[in-house]
Design a protein around this nucleic acid. Sequence first.
DNA 1: ATGTTC
Length: 470
Amino acid sequence: MDLIAETPYRFRIEQHGSMRVPGIVFASEALLPEKSEGALEQVVNVAGLPGIVGASYAMPDMHWGYGFAIGAVAATDVATGGVVSPGGVGFDISCGVRLLAADLDRDDFERRADRIMDGLSAAIPRGAGKGAVWELPDSELQRVLLEGSRYPVERGYGTQRDLDRCEDGGAVDDADTSQIGQRARARGLAQLGSLGSGNHFLEVQAVEQIYDQRAAEVFGLRQDGVCVMIHCGSRGLGHQICTDHVRAMESAMPRYGISVADRQLACAPVDSPEGRAYLGAMAAAANFARANRQVLGTAASDVFRKETGVELELVYDISHNLAKVESHAVDGETRQLCVHRKGATRALPPGHPELPPDLREVGQPVLIPGSMGTASYVLTGVPGGDAFFSTCHGAGRTQSRHQAVRSVDVKELRKELTRQGVRVRGSSARGLAEEAPTAYKDVDAVVEAAEGAGLCRKVARLVPLGVVKG
DNA sequence: ATGTTC
C-alpha cells in the first residue's frame, strides 16, 4: 500500500482492489502510524463500504481500532444504499468532551488547590462499574434516553443556558428506546454521572496561551483563567448497545448482499430495519452520554461554588464518537449523508446555520483532550475542510494498554506529574500506567497537523493543574 | 471504551 504525499499534512491512498473511494490521511510524516499497526489497512477496508462517498478519511491522531481506525471519518449516501456501521462510531457512543470556565485565575486556584481537588475527588464517581451521581429509576432513565441533557436541566442539574452551549442543544432527535435491550438499560440505571475508566478524566486546567483573542472571548476563555474539562461517554449502556447491534448486523448482512473486508465492519443500509434500529439506539445512548456530562459538570460546579464561591460557565460540550445524518454537497449536489466520526470531532465553520447565534461569528468550539499531564486544546471550525467539517479528537495512542503497563513505572509517573505541578486523584495504578503520556502521540504535533491540513484553527492551549482520573 | 472473556 502506497501513501502519496499531497501536501506536508495530507496523504493519499489510491483506490485499489475493492475500494470504492480513495483513502485520505491527514497527518505529518512523523505522525503516520506504523504500517504493521493495521490502522492504514483499516482506512482501506472502510473505503470498500457500500455507499461511501468522497474518501475514507483519517485524522492525525489515528490509531488501530475495532473495524474502523480511531480517528476515522466516513460518509455514506443514504438514498443509494449507503450503510451505517456501529464500528464507525465505536463502543463508547457519543464519548466526548465538556469544557467549563471559572471566573478564577490560576493563582486563585493554586491557593486552594488541595481542597478543590479533594472535593472533586469525592464528588466525581469513577472507575469501571462503580457509583454514579444520580441513580435513576427506569421511568427517569427513559426521559434521559429521549431528552439528553434537557432532562437533568429540568431536574435542577444545570441551567437552560447550558443547553445553548451543547452540541444539538443537549439532545439528538430520533432516539428509539424500543431498540435498547434490557441489559443495556440495566447498566445505564446505575451509571448516570460517572466518568468510567480508561482515558476518561476530569481535569482542572489553566489557559496557557491564546491564539485567537476574539474567538477565545466569545467562547468565554481568558489568559490564565481556570477551566474544568470532562472527558467521558455513555458507559456500559453505550457499550452494550454497540455489542447488541453489531451482532444483529452480522447476521443481517447476507440478506442485503453486503460483504466487508473485516467482520468488525458489520453494517446495514441506513434505510433498513437494522440500520434504523441501530441509529435509534445509538441516538438514545448519545443522549445518555450528554446527560452524563451534564450531571458531572454540575457536580464539579457545586465543588467550585462551595470552595471558591465562583460558578463554572459552560464553554461547549461536543462528541467525538457519533454517526449523524447530515446534508452535504457531493459533486455539486446536496445529498443526505450518514457521517461516521469515530475519534473525530465535528468542526462547524463560522456562519454555519446549525450554530447558535452567539457562536456563529467565530465557529464551533472543538475540544481536544491531551493525554494525562499534557496540554489540551480549544480549536474552531474553518470553511472549506474536505472531511465533512471534521477534525482530530485527542492525542491518539502509540502504545496498546498492555504495552503501556509493561513499560511504565507508576511510581515514577506519579512523581513526574507532581514535579510538573499536576495534582493527581487517581483510580487504579494500572489505569494510570495505561494512560501514561509516553503511550500517546504528542498532542501539540497532532493539532499542528490538523490545522496545517486546513481542518481547524487553534484558539487556546490549556495546561493541567489537577486531574481526577477514571 | 467495557460489570476489562457470555
